[in-house]
Design a protein around this nucleic acid. Structure first.
Lengths: 283, 283
DNA sequence: AGGAAAATGTAATTTTTTGACATTTTTTAT
DNA sequence: ATAAAAAATGTCAAAAAATTACATTTTCCT
């Protein structure tokens, strides 16, 4: 855990002098990492060993080790994971909190990915006769995005928002078809049914969902994404982003597997789009 | 700049002994930050002052300062911004690269946002009679996502993929309506036209696009997002994610502005969804 | 090959951190 | 309310680490 958060959390457990140190550090962490223990002790109006004890209480080896941890917390892009948006936040505050917590969630998600499954799924996708992407609610737009990405590969790819269309499409599946189902919770009934139908029709079902969910149990392969609790109570936020990034990973794996010749094809698609665009002026 | 990258880049300019040090550090940076200058000197088979000189050559104050920088480079979530996917990457490598560069892009995007415009747009949205979200291609799924988010707020919200429907919808706009147009490049002709049509019909047009683009010029307000070059040559990746996160910011600003009573309404929407889900078992 | 310049190492100095122990403050039990 | 115990904090000295000054070696150029 981020040591700044840790200091904030443990603040109550600190002794009087340790609190002084904590406050000085929290008030100006950038200064703290560039100070010696003597300087910091003087700033906090506390003795040097007290600062040292403070560091050890936070499970660091000593002052230098503590500074290392602090430096890491302050590093660019290392976000406060659990900074939830608060009712009284200013636009500046909630904007930063949302970006930071999104980045933090991506980091957690990244670590939770099983690369072997990714590799296996990329294999499947490159060999698929037809690829379908389905999701509902917030995950529908992820499926939509996947359609857009894979469509450029010039492979038969299908996406429906309508659950009846989804069902019909799956009933017509056959061996060699891959159905990718996206759901954060993995508890959406109709999507679980889609998984069952698809498998009955010999399609391979890939779930982008949380492990141990009902949906996960019905899938041939599960790309499980661990995403921290969403920042906003009522809307999926980070989970979507993690799913999208995973789609990017799959799409990238796909192009890499297909090799160079294939990438030229992609370029062609891109060039075709040019007609619908305003050209960029020089200078 | 990331000090690890810096070491790699300057490697040619190092002297023989300094190269030894560089290699030991690059080979095992995690060990390096936990070693004393004496240990590191011994590992590199070099004297202590040489290590010190090495640190100074990299524009640090000395060895401890160097360790601080190194620690920051190694911090969780601090990505190598310019790590592009390479043809020969293993699944593990490209997965990590994509996640890391996505996080890096979010960080850049975050810094480029003008919070005042965000605030102003949130104002507009809360007071809008009708909100429309339009995008094409990769941005279509972003618009789709925005629909999903704002639909929960129980406000009149519109989204079309079809450009004719988009046009017709905009022709029926009136004062008080807000049209949000999403495009990474801001050079999609039909979207620029949509902006013009909307403004002619007294709607307020908000662009989520890059500054100085043709689209930006037609908008009443521009939420410009600076996103580094996409990792993959042929597909928009990071830009989409940044757009989505910005949508999250707007949605969050929206709920905050509307206050508590409004949030209860949101909860109700969420509860309604429960019937379509499998309940989570305890334990 | 010889000398200047650069690189590296040695050893001493200084700075910084840590440990041992004394003193003060706080807590608890009567 | 007070004495004893425990916890917290500080003082000072020892240890560790980093840095400096200077000596030696290596490299490069003529």
């Amino acid at each position: 855990m981020n040591i700044l958060e840790k200091i904030t959390q443990n603040k109550a457990a600190f002794s009087k002098s340790e609190k002084k140190v904590a406050e000085i550090i929290l008030a100006n962490p950038q200064t703290a990492i560039h100070s010696s223990i003597a300087t910091l002790a003087k700033m906090s109006d506390v003795s040097e060993p007290t600062v040292n004890r403070f560091c050890r209480r936070l499970d660091t080896k000593g002052f230098p080790d503590f500074k290392l941890h602090l430096a890491q917390s302050l590093a660019n892009g290392t976000p406060y994971v659990n900074r939830h948006v608060d009712e009284n936040d200013s636009p500046d505050e909630y904007t930063n909190k949302i970006f930071e917590s999104t980045m933090a969630s991506l980091e957690v998600a990244r670590q939770s990915i099983d690369v072997n499954v990714v590799n296996r799924v990329v294999d499947l996708l490159t060999q698929a006769q037809k690829i379908s992407f389905f999701g509902l609610g917030a995950s529908a737009s992820v499926a939509h995005d996947a359609l857009n990405k894979f469509f450029r590969f010039n492979v038969p790819v299908v996406y429906f928002e309508d659950i009846l269309m989804q069902r019909m499409s799956c009933m017509n599946c056959s061996a060699g078809d891959v159905v990718v189902l996206i759901s954060h919770t993995g508890r959406t009934k109709s999507l679980v049914e889609i998984a069952q139908i698809s498998r009955m029709n010999d399609a391979t079902v890939v779930g982008i969902t949380s492990a141990d969910s009902p949906l996960a149990q019905e899938c041939s392969y599960v790309l499980s994404l661990e995403v921290p609790e969403d920042t906003d109570m009522y809307m999926p936020m980070a989970s979507r982003i993690a799913q999208l990034t995973l789609i990017d990973v799959l799409a990238t794996g796909f192009t890499l597997r297909r090799g160079n010749k294939f990438r030229e094809n992609l370029k062609r698609v891109k060039d075709t789009l040019r007609g619908s665009r305003y050209e960029k002026r020089d200078g």
